[in-house]
Amino acid sequence: MPRTAKVAPRVSVDDAKSASANYHAHALTRGLALLELLADGPQPLTLIDFHARTGLPKSTLVRLLSVLTDAEYVVRVDERPAFRLGHKVLRLSTAYVSSLDLTVAAGPYLRQLAVASGYTANLGLLDGSQVLHVCVEEPPRPIRFMAYTGSRDDTYCTALGKALMAALPASALPAHLPAAEPYSRRTDSTITTHDEMRRELARTARRGYAYDDNEGSVGVRCLAVPVVVDGETVAAVSVSGPAAELSPDRHEPFVDQLHASAAKLAADVDVVAALRIVHRSLLPTRGGTNTP
């Protein structure tokens, strides 16, 4: 006797909701779930699509979609019927975006890192051949590396720059490095050629973190790791401090702290949204754009 394929049971949109929710809260939760389905795309979705994805009765869906349509959060586009998002959703998303402040969103994670490590914590983005410091927190100690939110530094002599460039294809690197060789030598340890930098970025990618060994300033060392969201590097986070305290044999605990902080930043939807907004505000590079 032929075996029939097992069909996974349909999960109702109500299954994850509290049974104690009152009627109006229940209806609101269901309506928001329909908006989330439309936001996940592709649009438009038909009544049959909503029924298949939520498990809600069609009569309930008709009532919910009617309310959302009357309120202009949803637009009916044909007689199937099918629906897409309405203009009121844009008003909400615009208000959300305008309320985001990257220093407020990312600051607590950077402060935690600065206190735990004892070093200056820095969140950076690529901006052409420079790194833009979008959030900086200093540790509570008298001797510390000084940096400022909104300041910039060269990519080629910073751990942040290396961590960000190590994720790029080779064809994209010229847009983020000095146009002419040798690069300006900041210290005796500064990397000054394309070939040397490519080798350094390969080492960075293999070990999973970047290292600035007195390359930007004598007496200062820095470690950095990428902040990765859905396989894409959207920023990098670093700690910087006295060279004597960040020797290679002492890297492991600080790299662990950096990876933990990067994971927290990547998991915070407000931080990621704010980072993408800042990316879009940056000028195009010589070889393309900075938008992730």
Rank of each mutant, 00 (worst) to 15 (best):
R53N: 10
A116E: 15
R203V: 02
S99W: 07
D188T: 07
V234F: 07
A263P: 04
K162R: 13
H133K: 14
S261I: 03
A52I: 00
G287D: 14
V228S: 04
V220T: 15
A235D: 13
A167R: 12
R91M: 08
R63T: 12
A121E: 01
M197S: 02
L34Q: 01
A243H: 10
A262P: 09
R185I: 05
V136A: 11
Q112R: 09
G118V: 01
P142A: 09
G161D: 12
E200H: 12
L38T: 03
V7Q: 10
A262W: 06
E79W: 02
L223S: 07
R280I: 01
P292K: 06
A166F: 09
Y96E: 11
M165E: 14
F83Q: 04
E252W: 00
G161L: 07
L102F: 14
T46F: 04
L125C: 04
K264C: 07
E215L: 07
E200G: 00
A39K: 09
S12K: 04
L56M: 08
D70M: 01
I191A: 13
R53V: 06
L34K: 02
S117N: 02
P248K: 13
H251N: 06
Q257Y: 02
T187K: 02
A260F: 00
R10W: 04
L100H: 10
R207G: 09
E36G: 08
L283W: 05
R141D: 01
A205S: 12
V115I: 05
R111K: 12
V104N: 11
T103C: 11
A260G: 04
A167F: 03
V269P: 08
G31N: 07
G107K: 07
H259R: 13
S184L: 13
G55W: 07
R144N: 03
D78L: 08
S189G: 00
V7I: 09
R111Y: 04
A121K: 00
D188S: 10
D40L: 13
S20R: 04
L38W: 06
E196F: 03
C135H: 03
Y211C: 09
V7F: 00
R250L: 06
E181M: 10
T103L: 09
T291S: 11
V225C: 06
L47A: 05
P2H: 11
P174R: 11
T187L: 00
V229M: 07
A210R: 12
S93N: 09
L102E: 04
A8W: 05
C157I: 01
S217T: 13
K88W: 01
V255A: 09
L100W: 11
T233E: 03
G107C: 03
A95L: 15
G31I: 02
G161C: 10
P284F: 05
L282S: 08
Y183E: 02
S59I: 13
P174D: 11
V74A: 00
